[in-house]
Simulated scan of single mutants.
Amino acid sequence: MSSEQSGKKIFNFMGARIPATALSVILLVVAIAALAVNGLKFGLDFTGGAQVEVRFSEPADIPQIRGILNEEGLVNPVAVLFGSDTEVLIRTQGAMSDGGEQALSRRLAQLYPAAELVSVDHAPRDRGNYSQSLTFSGLSESDVTDELLPGVYFGSHEARSEAAQVVVLTENSLDTAYTSELLDVLEAKTGSQVELRRSEYVGPQIGAELRDEGGLGMLVALAVVMLYVAARFQFKFSVGAVLALAHDVIIVLGFFALFQIDFDLTVLAAVLAVIGYSLNDTIVVFDRIRENFRKMRKGSSADVINASLTQTLERTFITSLTTLLVLVMLFVFGGELISGFALALIVGVVVGTYSSIYVSCNTLMWMHIVKEDLMPPEKEGSEIDEMP
Rank of each mutant, 00 (worst) to 15 (best):
N280M: 03
A269K: 09
D85V: 04
L149E: 02
A33W: 11
R127Y: 12
F317E: 04
V274I: 13
T47Y: 04
V326T: 07
Q165K: 12
D126W: 00
R288Q: 09
T323F: 07
A123V: 05
E116W: 01
F333T: 13
I250Y: 00
A344G: 13
E380S: 09
Q5S: 10
P124A: 04
I289Q: 07
L148K: 14
S84T: 15
I62Y: 14
D264Y: 02
G99M: 10
S137I: 08
Q205P: 02
Y130H: 04
A163R: 13
A342N: 01
Y130F: 15
I26C: 11
S320F: 00
G276D: 06
M375G: 02
I65Q: 07
D121H: 00
A230G: 08
E383A: 12
F286I: 10
P376M: 08
L321V: 15
G67Q: 12
G334W: 11
G49W: 01
S301K: 05
Q132G: 10
L111Q: 12
T323C: 08
N280Y: 04
G39E: 06
G340P: 00
S140M: 08
E200M: 02
A208Y: 12
V224R: 01
I68K: 09
P63I: 02
S360T: 05
E187K: 13
F11V: 09
L40D: 05
V120T: 14
T312N: 03
V54R: 13
T363F: 04
L108D: 05
T47I: 10
V225E: 00
M367Y: 08
G43S: 07
F56T: 07
E171D: 03
S24T: 11
S142V: 13
P77A: 05
R297K: 14
L210A: 15
G43I: 05
I305R: 09
T92P: 02
T145V: 10
T176I: 15
M375T: 13
T353V: 12
T92M: 07
V220W: 11
A257N: 11
R125E: 01
S156G: 08
A257K: 12
M218Q: 13
A114L: 06
V274E: 02
I289P: 06
F256G: 07
M329C: 15
V37S: 08
G348C: 04
V267H: 07
S105C: 03
V271T: 04
A257R: 11
V225S: 01
L182M: 15
G348L: 03
I32E: 02
H247M: 08
S238K: 10
R55A: 12
R66Y: 00
E372K: 09
D85S: 15
D146G: 13
L321G: 02
I62D: 12
V30G: 01
V120W: 01
D143L: 10
I261G: 11
S156W: 05
M14A: 13
L104W: 08
V224F: 14
S133R: 14
S57W: 06
M226P: 00
V274A: 11
A244C: 05
F233W: 08
K371S: 12
L243A: 11
A50G: 15
T266R: 15
S173N: 12
G217Q: 00
P388R: 14
L148S: 13
L245Y: 05
P204C: 06
E72Y: 03
F256W: 09
N70C: 03
